[in-house]
Design a protein around this nucleic acid. Structure first.
Length: 413
RNA sequence: GCAGGGAUGACGGAGCGGUCAAUCGUACCUGACUGUAAAUCAGGCGGCCUACGGCCUACGGGGGUUCAAAUCCCUCUCCCUGCACCA
C-alpha cells in the first residue's frame, strides 16, 4: 500500500495543502517539537509515529526542537497566557526531548535541528521588514487562537505569544531555503502555524511548500483530548512512567479506542490490524488487541528488552507467575518498575498502602480498606495487618482495586 | 484614571452573619456486574485521629467588627464590563 492510502486508512490526515498522491514521492519534511517539558508524552508520540511512517516510506526527516520558540510559548489551544520558562530549563528540556526522539528513530535516518540556531541571531528590524511585512493583520486577527483569547470572555494575549505563529512560519521558510524541506507535519492544533510557513514561502520564494495535520487523538469513551491532563499524563521518560506502567496503560485501553490506537501508534500493517480486530471481536475477554498494542508501543518507546520485561512483570501482577518464585534478577527489575517498600511483619495495611503510594493519605487508605479494595497476592484482603504468613518467600503483591495496574511490591525488611 | 461587577474546593458553579468542610454538576477513586473494557447502579471524594465522635487547615492576600464571618467593614492584588484618556 502506498503512503497516501495508508495514512488515509489510519485516519492520520485531517488537513492538507496538497493532493494525496503528492505524498507518494518521497521528499524532505520536518516536525517541530515543543520543549515545554523535559519529556514527551504519548500525545507527542502520535505525531512522532507519523514522522516514522514518512521516514520508512523514504522521506528524509528533519526533527526540530523548539529551543527558540519554547522561549516564547505557543498560544495555540491555550486559554490563557503561559508562564515563561527560564532559559536554562528549556535547554535541559531540549536535551531530554532529543534523547527520546533518538530512541524513537532508532535505526532510521533523520536530522535533528534546533531553531535557536537561526532564530537566535535574528535581528528584530530585519524580521519586521522581511517577515512581518508578509503577514496581513486582518488574517492573523481571524485566527482562532487570537479570536478566542481576545474575544469577549478571553483571557487576553501578549504580543509575544501573538508573534509565535510568525516565528514558526519563519522556521519553515528557513528550512525550505537552507535544507530543501518541502513539508511540515503537525497535530491539527498547529494548522494555523503551519499555514503561516506555507504562505510565507509562497510569497517570498514563489514556491510551493506543503503542510499536513493529523487529528488530535481523542478518547472515544469520554470525548476528551488524550494524554493532556496533568495528573494522568503518560510520559515517555521511564523515570516518570516506568515501562511497566506504560505497558499497563496500553493493556487497559478501552475497547472503543483500541483499533484507532493500533492504527495511530503502531507500525503494524493494515492486514495485521484487521486480523487483530477480528480476534478482538470473537474473544474480547482475552484482549488480543490491547496486548498487541501494548507490546508494539512499549517496544518502540522503551526497546525490546524493556517490553519483554514489562510483559513478564504483568505475569506477576495477574498471578500467572507467583511472586514467591521470582528470580533474584527479575526481582531487582521489579523493584524499579513498581512502587515498592520494605516492611516488618505486622505492618498495618493502611500504612502499607500509604507508604507504597497506592493511597494518597491515611484517610484515603482507610476508605479503600472499608470498601474492600485491598488485594494481597491477587486475593481480597480483609485483615488489618500484614502478618508474617501473608509474605511468601519474604514478599507479597499489594493491590488497590480490581484492575492490576495499581500494584506494589512489599518485601520483608 | 472614573464608575460598576467579580475572585469559593481539580474544573464549572451555589451560598451572602450561626444549622458550612461548604447545595449541585463534571472529573477522579472504590464496590457490584463483567473481560485489567464500556455502560449502569451504589458509595466516597481537604487533612489528622485511640472514629456513629473529635481536632486542625480552608472560601484571592492582609487587617477589623461580632459570642460567631465564605457571608459585614477597611485595604491590597488580579480579572471583567462601561466611560474617559491616547490614536
Amino acid at each position: 500500500m502506498n503512503l497516501s492510502d495508508d495514512l488515509a486508512w489510519r485516519g492520520l490526515i485531517k488537513d492538507k495543502t496538497f493532493e494525496p498522491k503528492w505524498l507518494d514521492t518521497p521528499r524532505k519534511f520536518y516536525l517541530g517539537i515543543d520543549a515545554s517539558s523535559d519529556s514527551l508524552t504519548i500525545g507527542n508520540l502520535a505525531i512522532i509515529t507519523l514522522a516514522r511512517r514518512l521516514a520508512e516510506a523514504g522521506w528524509s526527516a528533519v526533527m526540530l526542537a523548539g529551543g527558540a520558540t519554547s522561549l516564547v510559548g505557543d498560544p495555540g489551544g491555550k486559554h490563557e497566557e503561559r508562564e515563561l520558562k527560564p532559559k536554562s530549563e528549556i535547554e535541559r528540556n531540549i536535551e531530554g526531548v532529543k534523547a527520546q526522539i533518538e530512541q524513537l528513530f532508532a535505526g532510521q535516518r533523520h536530522e535533528m535541528v534546533n531553531n535557536l540556531e537561526w532564530l537566535g541571531e535574528l535581528k528584530y528590524l530585519d524580521f519586521l521588514r522581511d517577515i512581518g511585512k508578509n503577514f496581513s493583520m486582518t488574517e492573523l486577527m481571524q485566527r482562532e487562537f487570537v479570536d478566542t483569547r481576545m474575544g469577549e470572555s478571553g483571557a487576553g494575549i501578549s504580543y509575544a505569544e501573538f508573534s509565535y505563529s510568525l516565528l514558526q512560519g519563519y522556521d519553515f521558510w528557513w528550512l525550505f531555503k537552507n535544507k530543501d524541506v518541502q513539508l511540515q507535519i503537525g497535530a491539527s492544533d498547529q494548522w494555523g502555524n503551519m499555514l503561516s510557513g506555507v504562505s510565507l514561502i509562497r510569497k517570498k520564494e514563489t514556491s510551493e511548500a506543503h503542510a499536513l495535520s493529523m487529528p488530535l487523538v481523542v478518547n472515544k469513551a469520554t470525548g476528551r483530548k488524550f494524554g493532556k491532563s496533568e495528573t494522568g499524563a503518560i510520559w515517555l521518560d521511564p523515570k516518570r512512567t516506568s515501562p511497566t506502567q506504560f505497558y499497563q496503560f496500553w493493556i487497559n485501553v478501552d475497547d472503543a479506542d483500541v483499533e484507532e490506537y493500533l492504527k495511530i501508534y503502531t507500525l503494524l500493517p493494515k492486514e495485521a490490524v484487521n486480523e487483530l480486530m477480528g480476534q478482538q471481536k470473537k474473544t474480547p475477554q482475552e484482549r488480543p488487541a490491547q496486548i498487541a498494542l501494548a507490546g508494539e508501543v512499549t517496544a518502540m518507546v522503551h526497546g525490546v528488552e524493556a517490553n519483554k520485561f514489562a510483559q513478564s512483570v504483568t505475569d506477576y501482577l495477574i498471578g500467572k507467575s507467583p511472586i514467591a518464585e521470582v528470580s533474584e534478577a527479575a526481582l531487582k527489575e521489579i523493584r524499579i518498575a513498581l512502587p515498592n517498600i520494605k516492611a516488618q511483619p505486622g505492618i498495618s495495611v493502611i500504612e502499607a498502602l500509604v507508604e507504597s503510594g497506592l493511597a494518597a493519605s491515611n484517610s484515603d487508605a482507610r476508605r479503600l480498606a472499608q470498601s474492600k479494595a485491598v488485594y494481597v497476592n491477587d486475593q481480597q484482603f480483609t485483615k488489618d495487618h500484614l502478618e508474617a504468613g501473608d509474605f511468601k518467600n519474604g514478599r507479597l503483591m499489594l493491590r488497590r482495586g480490581k484492575a492490576y495496574k495499581d500494584s506494589a511490591l512489599i518485601e520483608l525488611a
